[in-house]
């Protein structure tokens, strides 16, 4: 049976399902309680599960992640919300020095089943620090799993898969797509749906592989539709750590071209890592260099310029054109 949900409501429904399934699942963050979060993703959970399981924390991100680590050590499965991407950074110390390393340090005696939900990315006309794409920092950090959702179906299931994971998962939510709506099959089971680590072919094609995740998947699909000269295959990467190279390489070997689009800045971005790896593993299949379409290597600009800063349909098409210039 299907339910029509937005991405935001689908995450909400997924959180609810996880909390119903396991009493150890907790939600923590700023304004997640009575307000239901500034994007309303935790709406209603405080009312239905109570203040012991839906915790309005003091305004302190390092405190949120640090105490969630403590909760995990005590056997809970905390789902923390960082209110906006730009406010993750005060929690960087706890995330990079503690959360990511705990399992290895303890030789596997300690698990960190912690999910960090972060609304991320630009395009909402916000003030500074509300439009960042920090995924490369997470991808670069051993010990973290990093995923991003692009549609309601994945939103509903991936949040539950992330919560079931015994490893810490950075769960990136494309905030400008929160209100995108689609059918969600809520009757499937966690075992049946696509595994958390897997990429998904969002559109089949034969001439070029276009790779995106999170907010850029929609743009990539639009670009594929718009380019009537070529048959473009769009892959939703979904998991940035680990990356599903089986799916990506198989596609590139079929199409011979790869274009990677993301909102994160170009240098040292996820596209750089994927390009290097694909070049190593698919070298003799490539008809052109791997092309990256990314944000510029500058701080996120004032919002009146974000339409130029963020890769849009035209910039993605320009990237595809560059791939076909070889």
């Amino acid at each position: 049976m299907g339910t029509n949900l937005t991405i935001g409501k689908a995450i909400n429904a997924g959180l609810r399902a996880a909390m119903e399934h396991d009493p150890k699942v907790l939600v923590m963050g700023e304004d997640v309680g009575r307000l239901g979060g500034v994007f309303r993703v935790t709406d209603g959970l405080h009312k239905d599960f109570g203040a012991d399981r839906v915790i309005d924390t003091p305004l302190a991100e390092s405190g949120i992640v640090g105490t969630a680590i403590g909760m995990a050590l005590r056997g809970y499965r905390p789902v923390v919300e960082i209110q906006f991407d730009g406010f993750f950074f005060p929690a960087a110390n706890q995330t990079f020095t503690q959360l990511a390393k705990m399992r290895r340090r303890s030789a596997g005696k300690l698990s960190m089943p912690l999910v960090m939900r972060i609304p991320y990315g630009g395009g909402i006309g916000a003030v500074e620090h509300h439009s960042e794409s920090p995924e490369a920092y997470f991808q670069h950090t051993a010990g973290l799993r990093v995923v991003s959702v692009a549609n309601p179906e994945d939103a509903y299931w991936m949040i539950q898969q992330a919560i079931r994971s015994d490893d810490p998962v950075i769960f990136l939510e494309p905030k400008r797509r929160y209100y995108e709506k689609a059918e969600v099959d809520t009757e499937a089971s966690l075992q049946e749906v696509t595994p958390l680590n897997s990429a998904r072919i969002a559109r089949s094609g034969t001439d070029c592989t276009l790779l995106a995740y999170g907010p850029m998947v929609k743009t990539a699909l639009q670009a594929a539709e718009a380019d009537t000269d070529h048959s473009i295959e769009v892959i939703d990467v979904r998991s940035l750590s680990p990356v599903d190279y089986d799916t990506i390489n198989a596609s590139v070997k079929r199409t011979g071209r790869l274009v990677i689009a993301h909102e994160a800045t170009l240098t040292g971005g996820p596209g750089a890592e994927i390009a290097a790896r694909v070049t190593e593993e698919c070298f003799y299949h490539l008809e052109s260099p791997v092309i990256r379409v990314a944000a510029f290597d500058t701080p996120y600009p004032q919002s009146r310029l974000e339409e130029y800063y963020l890769p849009d349909l035209d910039r993605v098409l320009d990237g595809v054109d560059r791939a076909f210039a070889y």
């Binding site: 700023e30 304004d31 309680g33 009575r34 307000l35 500034v38 309005d56 924390t57 003091p58 305004l59």
Partner: peptide, 10 residues
């Protein structure tokens, strides 16, 4: 008030 959280939460 810190958005929705009253002083007692801080």
């Amino acid at each position: 008030w810190a958005i929705s959280e009253p002083l007692e939460r801080q």
